[in-house]
């Protein structure tokens, strides 16, 4: 375990908690793609199947898995609940959240069957999960490119998400030099994810940060 990975995992968890805090405190879901949030739940559920095998890696690893699964499910619950509490915003979300996730699911499923560590259910599910995580933000990216509004996607959320991705690269470098081991599939998916995220951040910067700067009185 190295500081990059711990900080990366904590900022990943922080990004989910910030999103929950934003939804609950501002009581708005504007700009959030429910599809991306559902894909994240799928990422955690398919990746953490080893929780059921009780071959626990470590206490930290187990407790964080439980945190990730529960907090990401809670985000989706909050978004679903806004169907009643803020019906208009919920309808707007469904109207603008139009990315065809079928393509992502099919593509990542094929990738999982072709590229995995071992042709077992758990390993194919794990591989599906890392490929899925690398493209899960696409619905959110397309929604942002269309609407440009994003009250709930605050800079804190974007920063924490970016920090998580960024810190995983030095973590892999550190592990390669200290343990001489590297998970090639996680590395490949992680690089794709970092590229997709940087595209998302560029869009966010253009759409939200520069636009709000223009609106200054």
């Amino acid at each position: 375990m190295n500081p990059f990975r711990i900080l990366g995992d904590l900022s990943h968890l922080a990004s989910i908690l910030v999103l929950i805090f934003n939804i609950k405190s501002t009581n708005t879901i504007e700009g959030i793609s429910i599809k991306t949030q559902v894909l994240y739940v799928l990422v955690f559920l398919t990746r953490y199947l080893d929780l059921f095998s009780f071959r626990l890696v470590s206490f930290y690893n187990t407790i964080m898995k439980l945190f990730f699964i529960s907090s990401s499910i809670y985000v989706v619950v909050l978004l679903q609940r806004s169907k009643t509490t803020q019906a208009v915003a919920y309808k707007t979300m469904l109207l603008t959240d139009t990315f065809k996730v079928q393509y992502i699911l099919l593509g990542t499923l094929i990738a999982a069957f072709v590229i995995n560590h071992k042709f077992t259910f758990v390993e194919i599910a794990w591989s599906f999960s890392v490929w899925l995580e690398s493209v899960a933000i696409l619905p959110q990216l397309f929604m942002l490119s269309k609407s440009g509004k994003s009250k709930s996607l605050t800079v804190h959320y974007i920063f924490a998400l970016g920090l998580y991705r960024t810190l995983y690269i030095p973590n892999w470098i550190w592990r390669y030099h200290t343990e001489g081991v590297i998970d090639k599939i996680a590395l490949a998916a992680g690089i794709i994810q970092t590229l997709v995220y940087s595209d998302f951040f560029y869009l966010y910067y253009k759409k939200v940060i520069k636009r709000s700067a223009l609106n200054l009185p």
């Binding site: 890696v57 560590h117 794990w126 998970d183």
Partner: peptide, 10 residues
């Protein structure tokens, strides 16, 4: 057989 892969990263 290939070693059992242990994923210790989240």
């Amino acid at each position: 057989i290939t070693k059992n892969v242990v994923h210790d990263e989240l």
